[in-house]
Amino acid sequence: MARVSTRTRGRSYGYVGPAELKSAVRSGSGGFRVGSAADFGGWVAERSAVELAEPFTFVVGTDGVLRLAPRRSEHVACAGGARVLGAGEISFVREADRWTVSDVSNHSTGYCPDVTSWTAVAHALDGVGLVRPSGFTHEVVFRRCPGCQEHSIVRESDFVCVFCGSDLPQMWNVDPTV
């Protein structure tokens, strides 16, 4: 079972998206828990070619375990409403006799994880024996505007709020409880 030590764990992220999405999460729900290579093998064998052609929603729980759900699933539902160490979208491709992560991002507007969440994501993928890239294939930089409090995606290193034009901080600041 993949576990993240306190040393490699890093920051956890609370849900910062719309409250109605979190309130819709039911106890015991969540994405498919991938705690081993066998878990992943069973899960991927049940996916159709159409499903595998699209990215999946993923989270890494605070226990360090990868959880997967269909792409259009909300990250907060995949996480069962809990805090996460990482969240985003992930794609898999079969190469020779093994599965490889072809694309992985931290694109989750519900959790807005920092790019530093890669460490926890990499550890979870390594724990189930998936070949992976050396970092996110698409990094998303999230910031909370100190002026209007909206969550923004920083594009092309332009740290300016798209909602009000205020400067955005260089350091991750999305979750006000951290």
Rank of each mutant, 00 (worst) to 15 (best):
M1E: 05
R3V: 15
V4Q: 01
S5Q: 12
S5T: 15
R7S: 08
R7P: 01
R7H: 08
T8A: 14
T8W: 04
G10W: 06
G10R: 12
R11L: 12
V16I: 12
G17R: 10
L21Y: 11
S23F: 09
V25L: 05
S27M: 12
S29K: 02
G30A: 09
G31K: 11
F32W: 11
F32S: 07
V34D: 00
V34R: 03
A37Q: 04
A38H: 13
D39F: 06
D39W: 07
G41N: 05
W43T: 05
V44F: 08
A45I: 06
E46M: 14
S48K: 10
S48L: 01
A49I: 15
A53N: 13
F56N: 02
F58K: 01
G61D: 04
G61F: 12
G61S: 08
G61A: 11
D63R: 07
G64L: 10
L66Q: 09
R67N: 00
R67Q: 01
L68A: 10
P70S: 07
R71P: 01
H75S: 03
H75P: 07
V76N: 04
V76D: 00
A77Q: 13
C78L: 11
A79H: 03
G80L: 05
R83C: 06
L85G: 01
L85Q: 07
G86P: 00
A87S: 08
A87T: 04
S91G: 05
F92C: 12
V93W: 08
A96M: 12
A96E: 12
A96Q: 12
R98Y: 00
T100I: 14
V101Y: 05
S102L: 11
S102P: 10
N106W: 03
H107I: 14
H107P: 02
T109C: 12
T109R: 14
G110H: 08
P113T: 02
D114K: 12
V115D: 00
V115N: 00
V115Y: 01
T119Y: 02
A122E: 05
A124H: 00
D126I: 01
G127Y: 07
V128H: 08
G129W: 09
G129T: 09
L130G: 02
L130E: 02
V131Y: 02
R132P: 02
S134D: 00
H138S: 09
H138G: 06
E139Y: 05
V140N: 04
C145H: 06
C148Y: 07
H151P: 03
D158G: 12
F163H: 13
F163I: 14
G165Y: 03
D167Y: 13
L168K: 11
W172V: 08
W172Q: 04
V174E: 06
V174L: 11
